[in-house]
Computed example of a mutant assay.
Amino acid sequence: MPGGRLTQQERQRIAAGLAGRLSYAQIARQLARPTSTISREIARNGGPGAYQPQRAHRATAIRARRGTPVPPPADGSAGGVIDDEMIEVAVRSGLPRLTARVHIDLLLSEDGRRTAAELTRRLKVSPASVSVAVNSLVENGYVRRERDPERRRDIYVVDDAAWYNSVVISSRQTLEAARSALAGAEAAGLDTPVGRRLARGGAFLERIILDTLESADRWRPLLSEPG
Results as ranks from 00 to 15, higher is better:
32 A>G: 05
106 L>F: 07
117 A>D: 09
41 E>P: 11
49 G>A: 15
68 T>Y: 03
53 P>V: 06
73 P>H: 07
91 V>N: 01
43 A>Y: 04
115 T>S: 15
71 P>N: 04
71 P>W: 02
29 R>D: 13
97 R>T: 10
124 K>D: 13
100 A>G: 09
100 A>M: 06
92 R>L: 12
45 N>Q: 14
19 A>E: 11
44 R>S: 13
19 A>R: 15
73 P>F: 06
35 T>V: 15
77 S>R: 14
117 A>Q: 11
78 A>Y: 03
93 S>A: 15
84 D>E: 14
22 L>E: 09
41 E>Y: 09
21 R>M: 12
119 L>Q: 02
125 V>K: 14
56 A>V: 11
59 A>G: 01
35 T>C: 10
66 R>V: 10
55 R>S: 11
85 E>T: 11
112 G>P: 02
36 S>N: 12
25 A>F: 02
120 T>C: 04
21 R>K: 15
38 I>S: 02
65 R>E: 15
129 S>R: 15
77 S>H: 07
129 S>C: 06
90 A>F: 03
83 D>K: 14
62 I>S: 07
18 L>T: 10
48 P>E: 13
57 H>L: 05
62 I>D: 11
22 L>F: 05
42 I>Q: 07
18 L>S: 07
38 I>C: 05
87 I>T: 14
78 A>H: 09
30 Q>N: 11
112 G>I: 00
48 P>N: 08
83 D>M: 12
38 I>K: 02
52 Q>A: 15
111 D>G: 02
54 Q>A: 15
103 H>E: 03
96 P>Q: 12
108 L>Y: 01
42 I>P: 00
121 R>C: 01
47 G>D: 11
105 D>A: 12
99 T>E: 09
89 V>L: 14
97 R>W: 01
20 G>K: 14
24 Y>K: 03
127 P>A: 09
51 Y>D: 06
37 T>F: 01
99 T>L: 02
